[in-house]
């Protein structure tokens, strides 16, 4: 780095004022890592997607994707599954985290219980759903004992995949929301309470604005989890129908059909769709207050 040029001692000083000093050397391993193992493979895949297996125009794969409804429809299939799942997860975790943010007996136990589903993972959740929701499983038995006429056909179905996304995604959203909520300085709410605000107004005007940036991040992360659904869409969904999500299409193109450039193409389109949604959410988030009083993320 030119930072330490001896004949111009003022340069180091001037750079330091702009935030460039030896601390930045700490960035080197991380940046090197992410460039080599993330940026390079992604760019490699990107250029591969413009080299169709059968030759022809560089955009042949993309035009195939958008002209073939069997492939193009996977975009909507995925969004129809991921957006409801992410919204349910975030919206459900707000009231629950708000109620549980104080101290009470058994809080640690309850948080631990709610964390457990994260450790289950999608594969085990799928296995469990297959049996729990099956026509002879406990869920349908309880419904029939309560007076239902015939068992609901829940596996394989779109609903079962949504359930699996909620089971794995909700605890994650809850945990994040709870930690963002706990990061908000309680004295702010106390001040509002002192001025006579009831809990609704405290929530609306103090907690929610401070929490909103964190909620945006939470939404993004649960959306990613839901968007990339792969094992459960295969195992409890209808992989050739209602839950034929983009990752299934990409996987089948690359590994079942061996058409690697097509697989990359679908992966690229998948990333673009995803980033559009994320960018919209983050653009909204950048308009929010992010101060030192917590809830940031």
């Amino acid at each position: 780095m030119t930072v330490t040029a001896p004949e111009r001692p003022s340069l180091k000083h001037r750079l330091a004022e702009r935030g460039v000093d030896r601390t930045l050397l700490l960035l080197v391993p991380g940046v090197l890592f992410v460039v080599l193992l993330f940026a390079y493979p992604v760019l490699y895949g990107l250029q591969l997607s413009f080299q169709p297996a059968e030759g022809g125009s560089p955009f042949a794969n993309y035009s195939t994707f958008f002209s073939d409804p069997y492939l193009a429809d996977t975009i909507w299939t995925t969004l129809r599954l991921a957006i409801p799942a992410a919204l349910i997860n975030v919206l459900a975790s707000i009231p629950i985290a708000y109620r549980l943010r104080g101290r009470f007996r058994g809080k640690r136990f309850l948080t631990t219980i709610l964390v457990v589903p994260i450790t289950l993972g999608t594969v085990l959740t799928a296995e469990g759903l297959k049996q729990y929701l099956s026509p002879v499983g406990w869920f349908n038995r309880i419904l029939m004992a309560l007076g239902m006429d015939e068992p609901m056909r829940l596996v394989p179905s779109w609903t079962a995949v949504l359930f699996s996304l909620i089971i794995t995604g909700f605890p994650f959203a809850f945990l994040l929301t709870l930690s963002y909520l706990s990061g908000i300085d309680p004295t702010l709410e106390q001040a509002a309470a002192t001025l006579g605000a009831d809990w609704r107004r405290r929530f609306r005007y103090i907690t929610l604005p401070l929490l909103a940036p964190g909620l945006a991040i939470t939404f993004c992360l649960t959306f990613v989890l839901a968007f990339s659904v792969f094992p459960s869409a295969y195992l409890v969904g209808l992989p050739q129908g209602e839950t034929r999500v983009m990752s299934i299409a990409a996987y089948e193109a690359a590994f079942r059909d061996g058409d690697y450039p097509m697989g990359s193409t679908i992966a690229v389109i998948m990333a673009v769709v995803m980033l559009v949604v994320i960018a919209l959410v983050l653009a909204w988030r950048s308009r929010l207050y992010r101060g030192a009083t917590g809830g940031k993320g």
Binding site: Y44, G45, A271
Partner: peptide, 21 residues
Amino acid sequence: VLFLLPILLPPMTYGIPLATV
């Protein structure tokens, strides 16, 4: 942004190119 991307992107999207590399 470079550090956000690997978390925000689904593993399937960069997993396929990463596996080839």
